[in-house]
Every structure is written in C-alpha cells, then in structure tokens.
C-alpha cells in the first residue's frame, strides 16, 4: 500500500498543479478571443496579450495597464495605454481617442469599469468599436435610461418637422467636432432623426459642456446655440 502511494502521489500532485495552471489558461481563454479582433497586433507565435499587458521582468509585479506614471494627471489610467496606439501610429485615428482640448465622457482613471472600459471592452465584444453596449446613436440609453423622449427630442424626424440642422455630417475623426448630426431610424448611419449622438459626443465634446457638439453661449452659459443648430428661426 505504501509503495502504491509513492506511485500515485506524484501523479496526483502533478495533476493538481497542472489543473491549477490550466485554470489560468482557461480563465484567459474565457476572457474573450482577442486574437479574432482588431486588437490582435501580434506577430506570428507571439501571445496577443503582451502588447497591452506589457510584461515586466520582476515576478509578481502588476502588468500594464495597472501601473501608471503620473497617475493623478488627466492622462492617467487606461487613457495612456489606449493613446499609445490610438495616436496615429499603430492606428489611423488620433485625436478622436484623446484630445486635451476636447473633453470626453466622464471617467475615473485607473478604476476598473469606470475608465475607458466603462464603454469599451478591449478584449472584444459582439458590437462594433469594442463597445460594451449596442452600437447605435442612442447607445447612451444603456446607462442614461432617464434621458428619453420625455425631455429630449430623441427619435424626432428633424427634416419632416421642418427643422434645418446645421452641419449634419460633422466628423470628429477628421478634426471636425462641431455641429449636429442626424441619424437613420436604426441610429447606425446618416438620416433624418435626432438621437443622442446628434448633440453629444462622448469623444470630444465642446469644453465646459455636457460633451455637447456645439458650444454653450458665451453669455449665461446656456445651450441655446445648440438648439439653434436646428431651430434656426428661433
């Protein structure tokens, strides 16, 4: 019996350790299939993880993006990591991801789920742009569920209502941050309807506004200028 223990025990111990290690692998594999996303920037034979979770030599240290220089600055948290590629080098887009002159949606730097990862899951989602929520011009509703047709003209066919929206094709990616934009019924492309993204831009609103695409009036800080984008006669 004792001899049997000496034979079986090594197998059990190795199996337990293997299972523990496999657990890590399983956890990683469950994390999402990053390799099938646009975030797969790996060369052949290189794990895709290491480009964001940049390895460190010292064992037990946290991996990026947990460690952040200048953690108290506006450029802290995931923003630095995202911008390290989305700065016109690895990706074509540049100022859309980070622009010090264009405030974006509120976030808490370095806090999981409250940083850029509040809206985006860099490991991949079923939505475009790595969004955690459905991708359309009303996706704000996933969190701001009280901002609806009762107090916003969401869903209104602006053209049919006789409005005259200005600059309906503003393009932040090309550096054009101002104006309003109308959407189709699905909120996936150009159209006639007012939706959240008609007036708000989570990646580059006007300074000192609720990330609106049109500046507040200089006198009184009202958003009448935004209203007048459509209600040109008022």
């Amino acid at each position: 019996m004792r001899r049997l223990i000496w034979v079986v025990a090594p197998l059990i111990v190795t199996a337990v350790i293997f299972a523990m290690r496999s657990g890590v692998d399983v956890a990683l594999s469950e994390h999402k299939d990053v390799a099938s996303t646009a975030h797969n920037v790996a060369t052949a034979g290189t794990p895709v993880c290491i480009y964001c979770h940049v390895p460190r030599d010292a064992a037990g240290q946290l991996l990026w993006p947990n460690g952040q220089p200048n953690a108290k600055s506006d450029f802290a948290g995931l923003k630095r990591l995202c911008f390290s590629c989305h700065d016109g080098t690895v990706t074509r887009e540049r100022s859309y991801v980070f622009n010090p002159e264009r405030p974006d949606h509120v976030r808490t730097a370095g806090v999981t789920g409250q940083d850029c990862d509040r809206c985006h899951d860099a490991h991949g989602t079923t939505n475009t742009k790595f969004l955690r929520v459905t991708t359309n011009a009303n996706f704000c509703w996933n969190c701001h569920f009280r901002a609806g047709p009762a107090d916003h003209p969401v869903g209104v066919d602006a053209i049919a209502a006789g409005m005259h929206p200005v600059d309906t094709q503003f393009n932040p990616k090309a550096g054009d941050y101002s104006g309003t934009r109308l959407w189709n019924e699905d909120g996936t492309g150009p159209g006639n309807r007012v939706m959240c993204l008609t007036c708000h831009n989570p990646h580059g609103g006007q300074p000192n506004t609720l990330i609106t695409t049109v500046e507040y009036d200089s006198e009184g800080g009202s958003f009448q200028a935004l209203c007048r984008s459509c209600h040109v006669d008022r």
Partner: peptide, 24 residues
C-alpha cells in the same frame, strides 16, 4: 516529507512544461 518533495518535483516539471509568460 514525501509530499513536499513531490510538490517541488511536480512544480519543477510544471514550470518546465508550462513556463510563465515573460517579456517577449
């Protein structure tokens, strides 16, 4: 004592077979 030895041996075997991810 045997278990400790086995843990060490098993750990070494596992470390060789499945090395941790390090700097590329």
């Amino acid at each position: 004592g045997g278990l400790i030895v086995l843990l060490i041996v098993g750990g070494l075997i596992t470390a060789v077979l499945f090395p941790p991810i390090e700097g590329v």
